[in-house]
């Protein structure tokens, strides 16, 4: 592991963890325990161009764990749901962004958001609430998730523009 990779993961993890913690202060219109907007996922979009899947997963899980630890949610079902959803979403985002040029940040971000929402709700419906009627709130999750996803894409775009595209390349 090069120093550049290590410091980049550390930097983005710290940033993501801080945003993860701060965004719990933003009111979330759905009355779901642990419901969040997901703005901290913008760091994954920032890291995405040219990243290895393993690095992205380390970043995503470390970010969630850090945010959950300081938010006091580390030993709750919500943390487990968030890590599972994020793992699948990050893999999906990495997969569709590999073939350079097919999708833009908006599309990748939206794909990640839908995957994340679907996996989290499926886990809740299968293991926690254990009832399919939970999917009544799915459309509302989709709307809020899409808004956050587009906002994340805009944030990541402006960061990447200033950083000059790929962050992982050694100079």
């Amino acid at each position: 592991m090069t120093y550049r990779r290590l410091s980049l993961i550390a930097l983005l993890t710290a940033l993501g963890g801080a945003v993860h913690l701060l965004e719990t202060l933003i009111p979330f219109p759905l009355p779901v325990p642990g419901g969040r907007w997901g703005f901290s996922n913008s760091v994954i979009l920032i890291a995405l161009p040219g990243a290895r899947l393993s690095d992205l997963l380390v970043l995503a899980i470390a970010k969630s764990t850090l945010g959950a630890f300081f938010g006091g949610r580390l030993v709750t079902p919500m943390y487990l749901m968030s890590v599972c959803g994020l793992t699948v979403a990050v893999t999906a985002m990495w997969a569709i962004s590999r073939k350079n040029g097919h999708f833009g940040l908006v599309g990748i971000s939206l794909a990640g958001a839908i995957t994340n929402n679907t996996v989290q709700l499926a886990i809740a419906a299968a293991f926690i609430i254990r009832n399919v009627a939970l999917f009544l709130i799915y459309p509302y999750f989709l709307i809020l998730g899409s808004i956050a996803a587009v906002a994340n894409a805009a944030i990541a775009y402006s960061v990447l523009k200033r950083a000059g595209g790929k962050l992982w390349e050694t100079s």
């Binding site: 962004s97 097919h102 999708f103 833009g104 940040l105 908006v106 599309g107 999917f135």
Partner: peptide, 24 residues
């Protein structure tokens, strides 16, 4: 990486489709 590409429309379409199918 571009902000928006034509293919993104397919993903947006997918979201809209999921919404239409699941909205009460």
């Amino acid at each position: 990486m571009k902000f928006f590409r034509f293919s993104d429309l397919f993903i947006i379409l997918l979201v809209v489709l999921a919404l239409v199918l699941t909205l009460p």
